[in-house]
Each structure stands twice: as C-alpha cells, then as structure tokens.
C-alpha cells in the first residue's frame, strides 16, 4: 500500500504548495460564474417562455458594453452608464422582437434560430463598422484593492458578483410576486389559457425579450472593465451561456445559475494546469457528458 500512500502524500503536498492559487481561482470562478449566470438567466428566460434560442444574446451583451463605453465617455458616471445601457438595449431588444420574432410565432423553432442568427450577424458587423476593430476599455468605478495572498485583488470583482446576484434576485422576486411577473409565468405554463384570461401574450413575449436583452447589457457593462470590449466578444459568452443553460436544464432559472458557477469553477481550476484558451474545452466536455447522461440537465430532478 505504500504506492497509494506516496500518491496521497503527493496530492497533499501539491495542495499545500498550491493552496493559495486554488483559493484565488475559486474566487475568480465564482465572480465569472455570477456574470455568466446573469447572461444565462436572460437566455433561459427567453427560451423558457418564448421557445426561442436567442443566438443574438452575445451580441446584446456586446452592444450593452459599447453603449456603456459611450455613455461613460459622455457623462463620466459608470452607474449612469450601467442604467442607461440596460434601458437602451432593452428597447433595442423589444424593437428586434417586434420586427423579426413576432412574425415567426407558430412556425418551426428552426426559423427563430435562423432569424436570431441573422440579427447577431447584423449587430456584430454594425459594431465593427461603428466602433472599429480596436478593443475599447471601460474604466472600473472603484479602484480599491485588498490583499489575497500575494495578489492585490480588486474589490470591484466582488462587487460584480454581488450586483449580479442582486439583479438575478430582483428578477426572481419580480417573477414570483410582481403582477407582470405572474403574467409571464402564466404564459410559460399555458399560452392559450393565458391569452383566454386576457393576458396580452404577444406583449408578454416582447417584454420578456426586452428584460433578457437588458440583463445581457447590464452584464456587458459590469464585466466590461475586466476584459477588452470588441465586436466579436459576444460569441465566446453566448457559447458559454448556451452550455450552462443546457447543463442546468433548458428554461430552468435556478439550474442555470448553479451550472454557471459550476462550469466557471471547473474552468478556473483547469486554467491552473493548462492555458486559459484550452481551459474552455473543459466546459465543452461537461456539456457533452451532460447531454449523453443527463440530457434534461444536471440540476433538475431525474424525470420518471
């Protein structure tokens, strides 16, 4: 058994020398996970209520970050940029839903994938044309730092995680107790019955798309300071959001939040061993395993 003992000793030794980096990556993973949860909950809301797989979600995230850059450069206030960007992109989302998705209601869901894919192409290339290929920088509103082992860790990152949690919590309370939230849940359960009860279902769809778009924009502004903002940033995030939405169970809000944190943590740990570009593959593998063994999602009860 001494080989086994050696092995355990090796693992403990590795953990003891690398404990700091593991804790740092845990914090990083949770912060990224909360942002991802904010994006994914918009995506899962749109899918759960409208049966629309929104390929353009990453572009709404990107557009939110760009609107944030513009408002910040004019007004100088990050918080104003956050609020305005959310509102502007929510309005854009509503307009897109009315012009392109509403005519497709009742057709094969494939058509909505194609339409939102078209929207994503247009938005992405519009951003490229308007803002150019050079990445923009968004300044963070608070620059304070605290010491985490040998790293000076910015407070702002923790603030992001808290704000994302607050926005998602607000969404949950709205869906649970708000009048319009109850309309939305009624539409999810039975579209025809909701219509019969006098709920304006087409406008509920528009509203849901606008809320999802606004949440994507908010996460774009919040996350902007940590990454360079360019026209192609949407794809990476929409792919990750797709992964967590599927891993968490399509249309299941709680599941996608849990899956966001789970996947981000795994990626953060993988980044200790391999380069971050390759760590992405970990989340792909999680997705494939989920699809093979639990296609309804990891965080939902097994269907009987």
């Amino acid at each position: 058994m001494s080989a086994m003992g050696d092995w355990i000793g090796f693992v403990w030794g590795w953990l003891a020398t690398h404990g700091d980096i593991i804790i740092i990556q845990t914090v990083n993973g949770i912060v990224t996970g909360m942002i991802l949860a904010l994006i994914a909950s918009g995506l899962t809301l749109i899918f759960g209520i409208m049966d629309v797989v929104n390929f353009a979600h990453g572009e709404l995230f990107m557009l939110g970050a760009y609107v944030g850059v513009v408002v910040l450069s004019i007004s100088g206030s990050f918080w104003l940029a956050l609020v305005l960007s959310t509102l502007v992109v929510a309005l854009i989302g509503a307009a897109l839903q009315i012009t392109t998705l509403r005519p497709l209601v009742g057709r094969d869901p494939l058509n909505t994938i194609l339409a939102t894919f078209g929207i994503s192409l247009v938005l992405q290339n519009y951003a490229l044309w308007q803002f150019g290929p050079v990445p923009r920088k968004l300044d963070e509103p608070i620059t304070g730092q605290f010491v985490l082992f040998y790293l000076a860790y910015p407070w702002y990152r923790l603030l992001i995680a808290l704000l994302s949690g607050a926005i998602i919590g607000g969404l949950y309370l709205f869906l649970k107790h708000g009048t319009y939230g109850i309309w939305i849940r009624a539409t999810t359960q039975d579209r025809v019955m909701a219509q019969a009860m006098g709920i304006p279902v087409p406008w509920v769809h528009t509203g849901v798309f606008a809320i999802g778009a606004g949440m994507a924009a908010a996460s774009g502004v919040l996350f902007g300071p940590l990454i360079g903002i360019n026209h192609a940033m949407g794809l990476d995030w929409v792919l990750k959001a797709f992964i967590v939405v599927v891993v968490g169970g399509m249309g299941n809000l709680g599941g996608s939040i849990a899956a966001s944190i789970f996947v981000s943590l795994l990626e953060a740990y993988a980044a200790i061993v391999v380069s971050p570009a390759q760590a992405v593959i970990v989340s792909f593998v999680v997705l494939i395993l989920t699809l093979l063994f639990r296609p309804t999602g990891l965080f939902v009860p097994t269907p009987k």
């Binding site: 392109t100 005519p103 497709l104 057709r107 058509n111 194609l114 339409a115 078209g118 929207i119 192409l121 247009v122 992405q124 290339n125 519009y126 490229l128 044309w129």
Partner: peptide
C-alpha cells in the same frame, strides 16, 4: 471597408420571415 454582412444579414432575416 463597409462590413457586407450588415445588408446581407438584413436580407437574410427578411428571407427567413417572408421567403421560408
């Protein structure tokens, strides 16, 4: 310099809606 996918994308969306 103009990204061609803007007009092409708009035509594509229109075709998805009107010319499935």
């Amino acid at each position: 310099q103009f990204p061609y996918l803007i007009p092409v994308g708009v035509i594509f969306i229109a075709m998805v809606i009107f010319l499935p």
